[in-house]
Nucleic acid binder design. Structure first.
Lengths: 137, 137
DNA sequence: CTGTATCCACGTGGATACTG
DNA sequence: CAGTATCCACGTGGATACAG
Protein backbone atom coordinates (compact mmCIF):
# COMPACT_ATOMS: atom_id res chain seq x y z
CA UNK A 1 0.00 0.00 0.00
CA UNK A 2 2.11 2.85 -1.24
CA UNK A 3 0.09 5.85 -2.35
CA UNK A 4 -2.99 5.78 -4.52
CA UNK A 5 -6.51 5.60 -3.17
CA UNK A 6 -5.86 3.64 -0.02
CA UNK A 7 -5.51 6.72 2.14
CA UNK A 8 -8.79 8.17 1.01
CA UNK A 9 -10.88 5.07 1.28
CA UNK A 10 -9.36 4.51 4.68
CA UNK A 11 -10.11 8.12 5.43
CA UNK A 12 -13.85 8.19 5.39
CA UNK A 13 -14.12 5.50 7.99
CA UNK A 14 -12.49 7.30 10.91
CA UNK A 15 -14.23 10.48 9.76
CA UNK A 16 -17.77 9.32 9.89
CA UNK A 17 -17.81 7.38 13.09
CA UNK A 18 -18.48 8.51 16.59
CA UNK A 19 -14.99 8.07 17.99
CA UNK A 20 -13.66 10.57 15.44
CA UNK A 21 -16.05 13.49 15.23
CA UNK A 22 -13.39 15.38 13.30
CA UNK A 23 -10.59 13.67 11.42
CA UNK A 24 -8.73 16.82 10.39
CA UNK A 25 -9.89 16.99 6.82
CA UNK A 26 -12.61 19.44 7.60
CA UNK A 27 -10.12 21.71 9.31
CA UNK A 28 -8.10 22.05 6.15
CA UNK A 29 -11.06 22.23 3.82
CA UNK A 30 -12.86 24.89 5.76
CA UNK A 31 -9.66 26.88 5.83
CA UNK A 32 -9.22 26.50 2.08
CA UNK A 33 -12.91 27.10 1.60
CA UNK A 34 -13.23 30.31 3.54
CA UNK A 35 -13.71 33.51 1.69
CA UNK A 36 -10.17 34.86 1.37
CA UNK A 37 -7.57 32.20 2.25
CA UNK A 38 -7.04 30.90 -1.25
CA UNK A 39 -6.58 34.34 -2.69
CA UNK A 40 -3.99 35.10 -0.04
CA UNK A 41 -2.22 31.79 -0.64
CA UNK A 42 -2.11 32.24 -4.39
CA UNK A 43 -0.84 35.79 -4.01
CA UNK A 44 1.90 34.68 -1.62
CA UNK A 45 2.80 31.91 -4.05
CA UNK A 46 4.31 34.67 -6.17
CA UNK A 47 6.58 35.77 -3.36
CA UNK A 48 6.83 37.61 -0.05
CA UNK A 49 4.28 40.37 0.45
CA UNK A 50 3.67 43.12 2.96
CA UNK A 51 0.30 43.70 4.56
CA UNK A 52 -0.69 46.58 2.33
CA UNK A 53 0.57 44.78 -0.75
CA UNK A 54 -1.72 41.89 0.00
CA UNK A 55 -4.64 44.21 0.58
CA UNK A 56 -4.03 46.04 -2.68
CA UNK A 57 -3.63 42.77 -4.59
CA UNK A 58 -6.82 41.24 -3.23
CA UNK A 59 -9.60 43.55 -4.24
CA UNK A 60 -12.46 43.91 -1.84
CA UNK A 61 -10.82 42.47 1.25
CA UNK A 62 -11.14 44.60 4.35
CA UNK A 63 -8.35 45.31 6.79
CA UNK A 64 -10.07 43.18 9.40
CA UNK A 65 -10.59 40.16 7.14
CA UNK A 66 -7.03 40.30 5.83
CA UNK A 67 -5.77 40.32 9.41
CA UNK A 68 -8.00 37.42 10.38
CA UNK A 69 -7.09 35.43 7.28
CA UNK A 70 -3.32 35.77 7.59
CA UNK A 71 -3.53 35.10 11.33
CA UNK A 72 -5.38 31.86 10.77
CA UNK A 73 -2.95 30.81 8.03
CA UNK A 74 -0.10 31.66 10.38
CA UNK A 75 -1.64 29.65 13.19
CA UNK A 76 -2.01 26.66 10.88
CA UNK A 77 1.65 26.96 9.90
CA UNK A 78 0.93 27.74 6.27
CA UNK A 79 2.20 31.31 6.36
CA UNK A 80 5.16 32.87 8.13
CA UNK A 81 4.83 36.38 9.54
CA UNK A 82 7.88 38.54 10.08
CA UNK A 83 7.80 41.83 11.97
CA UNK A 84 10.46 44.48 11.40
CA UNK A 85 10.38 46.89 14.36
CA UNK A 86 10.78 49.96 12.22
CA UNK A 87 8.69 53.12 12.32
CA UNK A 88 6.20 52.78 10.89
CA UNK A 89 5.90 49.05 11.43
CA UNK A 90 6.76 46.72 8.59
CA UNK A 91 5.41 43.19 8.41
CA UNK A 92 6.00 40.63 5.70
CA UNK A 93 4.20 37.42 4.93
CA UNK A 94 5.42 34.40 3.02
CA UNK A 95 4.41 30.81 2.54
CA UNK A 96 6.07 28.17 4.69
CA UNK A 97 7.14 24.87 3.15
CA UNK A 98 3.88 23.43 4.39
CA UNK A 99 1.98 26.27 2.76
CA UNK A 100 3.85 25.82 -0.50
CA UNK A 101 2.99 22.15 -0.61
CA UNK A 102 -0.67 23.04 -0.23
CA UNK A 103 -0.36 25.77 -2.83
CA UNK A 104 0.23 23.21 -5.52
CA UNK A 105 -3.07 21.50 -4.74
CA UNK A 106 -4.87 24.80 -4.40
CA UNK A 107 -3.63 25.79 -7.83
CA UNK A 108 -4.97 22.56 -9.26
CA UNK A 109 -8.32 23.30 -7.69
CA UNK A 110 -8.21 26.83 -9.04
CA UNK A 111 -7.35 25.54 -12.50
CA UNK A 112 -10.21 23.07 -12.30
CA UNK A 113 -12.55 25.84 -11.27
CA UNK A 114 -11.39 27.95 -14.16
CA UNK A 115 -11.72 25.08 -16.62
CA UNK A 116 -15.21 24.08 -15.54
CA UNK A 117 -16.85 27.28 -14.40
CA UNK A 118 -18.83 27.43 -17.62
CA UNK A 119 -20.14 23.90 -17.06
CA UNK A 120 -21.13 24.78 -13.53
CA UNK A 121 -22.75 28.04 -14.53
CA UNK A 122 -24.75 26.28 -17.23
CA UNK A 123 -25.78 23.53 -14.86
CA UNK A 124 -26.99 26.09 -12.37
CA UNK A 125 -28.95 27.95 -14.99
CA UNK A 126 -30.58 24.74 -16.16
CA UNK A 127 -31.42 23.79 -12.61
CA UNK A 128 -32.88 27.19 -11.87
CA UNK A 129 -35.02 27.02 -15.00
CA UNK A 130 -36.24 23.53 -14.14
CA UNK A 131 -36.84 24.50 -10.51
CA UNK A 132 -38.14 28.06 -10.66
CA UNK A 133 -38.82 28.47 -6.96
CA UNK A 134 -36.01 26.73 -5.15
CA UNK A 135 -34.19 28.30 -2.22
CA UNK A 136 -30.74 26.82 -2.69
CA UNK A 137 -27.55 28.77 -3.00
CA UNK B 1 0.52 27.62 -23.25
CA UNK B 2 -0.34 24.05 -22.51
CA UNK B 3 -0.89 23.48 -18.82
CA UNK B 4 1.41 24.49 -15.98
CA UNK B 5 1.11 27.67 -13.95
CA UNK B 6 -0.10 30.04 -16.64
CA UNK B 7 -3.75 29.55 -15.81
CA UNK B 8 -3.28 30.30 -12.17
CA UNK B 9 -1.12 33.36 -12.49
CA UNK B 10 -3.55 34.64 -15.07
CA UNK B 11 -6.32 33.77 -12.67
CA UNK B 12 -5.67 36.13 -9.82
CA UNK B 13 -5.82 39.15 -12.08
CA UNK B 14 -9.43 38.92 -13.23
CA UNK B 15 -10.34 37.79 -9.73
CA UNK B 16 -9.05 40.75 -7.82
CA UNK B 17 -10.23 43.58 -9.97
CA UNK B 18 -13.47 45.46 -9.94
CA UNK B 19 -14.82 44.24 -13.27
CA UNK B 20 -14.74 40.67 -11.96
CA UNK B 21 -16.06 40.65 -8.43
CA UNK B 22 -16.28 36.88 -8.66
CA UNK B 23 -14.24 34.81 -11.07
CA UNK B 24 -15.81 31.46 -10.27
CA UNK B 25 -13.05 30.04 -8.16
CA UNK B 26 -14.76 31.04 -4.97
CA UNK B 27 -17.94 29.30 -6.08
CA UNK B 28 -16.16 25.98 -6.30
CA UNK B 29 -14.04 26.46 -3.23
CA UNK B 30 -16.91 27.47 -1.01
CA UNK B 31 -18.80 24.44 -2.25
CA UNK B 32 -15.86 22.17 -1.54
CA UNK B 33 -15.23 24.00 1.70
CA UNK B 34 -18.69 23.75 3.17
CA UNK B 35 -19.31 21.42 6.01
CA UNK B 36 -20.55 18.26 4.26
CA UNK B 37 -19.93 18.40 0.50
CA UNK B 38 -16.57 16.67 0.51
CA UNK B 39 -17.82 13.82 2.67
CA UNK B 40 -20.73 13.32 0.28
CA UNK B 41 -18.44 13.46 -2.75
CA UNK B 42 -15.97 10.98 -1.31
CA UNK B 43 -18.77 8.63 -0.32
CA UNK B 44 -20.29 8.80 -3.79
CA UNK B 45 -16.86 8.16 -5.25
CA UNK B 46 -17.35 4.58 -4.06
CA UNK B 47 -20.54 4.21 -6.03
CA UNK B 48 -24.23 5.06 -6.25
CA UNK B 49 -25.94 5.65 -2.93
CA UNK B 50 -29.48 6.15 -1.71
CA UNK B 51 -30.45 8.98 0.58
CA UNK B 52 -30.49 6.89 3.73
CA UNK B 53 -27.25 5.18 2.79
CA UNK B 54 -25.56 8.53 2.55
CA UNK B 55 -26.98 9.61 5.86
CA UNK B 56 -25.83 6.44 7.55
CA UNK B 57 -22.37 6.68 6.03
CA UNK B 58 -21.85 10.28 7.04
CA UNK B 59 -22.11 10.38 10.78
CA UNK B 60 -23.63 13.47 12.29
CA UNK B 61 -25.26 14.91 9.20
CA UNK B 62 -28.90 15.87 9.63
CA UNK B 63 -31.64 15.14 7.15
CA UNK B 64 -31.92 18.78 6.32
CA UNK B 65 -28.21 19.29 5.69
CA UNK B 66 -27.93 16.16 3.59
CA UNK B 67 -30.80 17.39 1.46
CA UNK B 68 -29.27 20.83 1.10
CA UNK B 69 -25.84 19.43 0.31
CA UNK B 70 -26.92 16.99 -2.39
CA UNK B 71 -29.23 19.63 -3.88
CA UNK B 72 -26.40 22.10 -4.19
CA UNK B 73 -24.12 19.46 -5.69
CA UNK B 74 -26.88 18.55 -8.10
CA UNK B 75 -27.41 22.17 -9.07
CA UNK B 76 -23.70 22.53 -9.76
CA UNK B 77 -23.81 19.45 -11.97
CA UNK B 78 -21.50 17.40 -9.76
CA UNK B 79 -24.09 14.88 -8.65
CA UNK B 80 -26.95 13.23 -10.55
CA UNK B 81 -30.20 12.55 -8.72
CA UNK B 82 -32.55 9.81 -9.90
CA UNK B 83 -36.06 9.36 -8.55
CA UNK B 84 -37.84 6.02 -8.77
CA UNK B 85 -41.56 6.66 -8.28
CA UNK B 86 -42.05 3.65 -6.04
CA UNK B 87 -43.81 3.54 -2.70
CA UNK B 88 -42.08 4.48 -0.57
CA UNK B 89 -40.02 6.80 -2.73
CA UNK B 90 -36.55 5.71 -3.77
CA UNK B 91 -33.87 8.17 -4.80
CA UNK B 92 -30.30 7.46 -5.81
CA UNK B 93 -27.34 9.75 -6.10
CA UNK B 94 -24.19 9.34 -8.12
CA UNK B 95 -21.32 11.48 -9.29
CA UNK B 96 -21.48 12.94 -12.78
CA UNK B 97 -18.39 12.98 -14.97
CA UNK B 98 -17.81 16.52 -13.79
CA UNK B 99 -18.12 15.40 -10.20
CA UNK B 100 -15.73 12.53 -10.75
CA UNK B 101 -13.12 14.84 -12.21
CA UNK B 102 -13.36 16.97 -9.11
CA UNK B 103 -13.23 13.91 -6.89
CA UNK B 104 -9.70 13.25 -7.92
CA UNK B 105 -8.58 16.67 -6.72
CA UNK B 106 -10.67 16.41 -3.58
CA UNK B 107 -8.99 13.13 -2.76
CA UNK B 108 -5.60 14.75 -3.16
CA UNK B 109 -6.68 17.47 -0.77
CA UNK B 110 -7.98 14.88 1.64
CA UNK B 111 -4.73 12.95 1.43
CA UNK B 112 -2.78 16.14 2.04
CA UNK B 113 -4.94 16.90 5.05
CA UNK B 114 -4.36 13.43 6.38
CA UNK B 115 -0.63 13.61 5.79
CA UNK B 116 -0.18 17.01 7.43
CA UNK B 117 -2.80 17.16 10.12
CA UNK B 118 -0.17 16.51 12.77
CA UNK B 119 1.92 19.41 11.50
CA UNK B 120 -1.09 21.68 11.55
CA UNK B 121 -2.20 20.55 14.98
CA UNK B 122 1.30 21.13 16.34
CA UNK B 123 1.50 24.52 14.70
CA UNK B 124 -1.79 25.53 16.26
CA UNK B 125 -0.70 24.35 19.69
CA UNK B 126 2.53 26.30 19.39
CA UNK B 127 0.65 29.39 18.28
CA UNK B 128 -1.84 29.11 21.10
CA UNK B 129 0.96 28.75 23.63
CA UNK B 130 2.79 31.75 22.19
CA UNK B 131 -0.41 33.78 22.00
CA UNK B 132 -2.37 32.82 25.10
CA UNK B 133 -5.27 35.19 24.61
CA UNK B 134 -5.99 35.26 20.91
CA UNK B 135 -9.49 35.03 19.48
CA UNK B 136 -8.78 33.25 16.23
CA UNK B 137 -10.35 30.02 15.15
C1' DC C 1 -37.99 6.37 2.64
C1' DT C 2 -37.30 11.01 1.17
C1' DG C 3 -38.01 14.79 1.87
C1' DT C 4 -40.22 20.06 3.47
C1' DA C 5 -41.17 23.67 6.92
C1' DT C 6 -40.01 26.35 11.03
C1' DC C 7 -37.49 28.18 14.40
C1' DC C 8 -33.22 29.39 16.32
C1' DA C 9 -28.16 29.72 17.76
C1' DC C 10 -23.98 30.69 16.13
C1' DG C 11 -20.07 32.18 13.35
C1' DT C 12 -18.48 34.69 9.46
C1' DG C 13 -17.64 38.68 7.38
C1' DG C 14 -18.49 43.87 6.35
C1' DA C 15 -18.28 48.95 7.89
C1' DT C 16 -16.35 52.14 10.64
C1' DA C 17 -13.50 54.32 13.94
C1' DC C 18 -9.45 54.34 16.59
C1' DT C 19 -4.17 53.15 17.94
C1' DG C 20 1.00 52.26 18.18
C1' DC D 1 1.91 51.08 7.86
C1' DA D 2 -0.28 47.50 10.39
C1' DG D 3 -3.20 46.58 12.94
C1' DT D 4 -7.34 46.48 17.09
C1' DA D 5 -12.10 47.35 18.71
C1' DT D 6 -17.11 47.61 18.04
C1' DC D 7 -21.22 46.92 16.08
C1' DC D 8 -24.18 44.61 13.02
C1' DA D 9 -26.31 42.01 9.00
C1' DC D 10 -26.45 37.85 7.03
C1' DG D 11 -26.00 32.96 5.97
C1' DT D 12 -25.05 28.46 7.59
C1' DG D 13 -26.27 24.75 9.98
C1' DG D 14 -28.79 22.18 13.95
C1' DA D 15 -33.29 20.47 16.11
C1' DT D 16 -37.73 19.34 15.60
C1' DA D 17 -42.06 18.44 13.59
C1' DC D 18 -44.68 17.29 9.72
C1' DA D 19 -45.82 15.33 4.75
C1' DG D 20 -45.98 12.67 0.28
Amino acid sequence: MSQGHMEVTALLEPCGKEEHPDCGIRDVLTRVGDKWSVLVIVELASGTRRFRELQRAIDGISQRMLTLTVRRLERDGLVARTVFPTVPAQVTYELTDLGSSLTHLVKQLADWSLAHREDIANSRTDYDVANPDHTIH
